[in-house]
Amino acid sequence: MSVVSLRGVTKRYGDTTAVDDVSFDLHENRIHGLLGRNGAGKSTVMRMLTGQDLPTSGQIRVVGENPFENAGVLRQVCFIKEAQKYPDIFLARHALKSAEMIFPNWDAEFAEQLVDEFRLPLKTRTKKLSRGQLSAVGVIVGLASRAPVTLFDEPYLGLDAVARQLFYDHLLADYAEHPRTVVLSTHLIDEVADMIEHVVVIDRGRIVMNDSADNLRSQAVTVSGPTKAVERFAAGHTVLHREDVGGYARLLVSGIPEGRDTTSLQVEPVSLQQLVVRTAQLSDSVLAGAANGKGELS
């Protein structure tokens, strides 16, 4: 069942189009990855989902309703972002207490456990917390809120590798016991790749991928070997990336050619990060070609 739905959503700021005719669904009890580069439109989408921005056009529904100025919807949505701001007078414990008052599914015992594990100083003012400690406040709120729709917009970037792994472990364990719709927006794709069940990739405000992670991984391969043999294998398929060394080539091929001769070739699965990065680079190349007169930009 779809919990979040966008249909033909566009968001403009003056002459800048941040989100351009975007449509996709986020389904109940699933971990989604909202991926893309800085400025791609990810944070704008999340702000619209949480009623902080209105779309210029199109329709947004969260748990079946428009989220803008809708307290009933927003109590079911937890949005945690990088560099989350709190009032200067707040201690860390005040931030958690405020979350407890907002979210009806708040688990105080779980929050206390996370405070201990992330070593969060509850009596320190939030403005005095380090970047890592502020990130810990955010992920604790996001996990302990148990909101039906939980959005993480890279709040864990401030955490060191050990603390990030702690977050991932707790997210998976708690999600297994208390399923909900989770959205992870991140640049650290390899770190979260095994957690993500559905992938939405946005680039220059447009959706360039929208599919299950398993389907995406099954639709591309990396093939390497003698150049001519590699090219015969890839003929008729989109090449997302190419490397040439002497008489050998290595190609990332979209689509898996069937019935091709693989003698002398090495065919390997592609990682989610490779697929996302190379697809975005291909999109850039197409746009650059259009801008250079090889096509038209709409």
Rank of each mutant, 00 (worst) to 15 (best):
N66T: 05
P67M: 00
F68I: 14
N70R: 10
N70G: 08
G72E: 14
G72T: 13
G72K: 14
V73H: 06
V73K: 05
L74C: 10
R75N: 13
C78K: 01
F79Y: 15
I80Q: 07
E82C: 12
A83Q: 14
Q84G: 06
K85W: 07
Y86D: 01
D88P: 13
I89V: 14
I89Q: 13
F90H: 06
R93W: 02
K97N: 06
K97H: 06
A99G: 03
A99F: 00
E100S: 13
M101E: 07
M101T: 10
M101W: 02
P104I: 09
P104K: 14
N105D: 09
D107V: 03
A111S: 12
E112P: 10
Q113V: 11
L114V: 09
V115G: 00
E117S: 10
E117V: 14
R119T: 09
K123V: 05
K123F: 12
T124Q: 13
K128P: 00
L129S: 04
L129C: 06
L129P: 06
G132E: 06
G132L: 06
Q133C: 09
S135T: 12
A136Q: 03
G138P: 02
G138Q: 01
G138H: 00
G138E: 01
V139H: 11
V139E: 11
I140F: 06
L143H: 03
L143G: 00
A144M: 04
S145Q: 09
S145W: 03
A147H: 02
A147V: 05
P148H: 08
F152Y: 15
D153K: 03
E154F: 14
P155T: 04
L157H: 11
L157N: 13
G158I: 04
D160S: 07
A161W: 10
A161G: 04
A163S: 12
A163Y: 07
A163Q: 13
R164V: 09
R164P: 12
L166V: 05
Y168T: 02
H170P: 11
L171M: 15
L171H: 07
L172Q: 12
D174E: 15
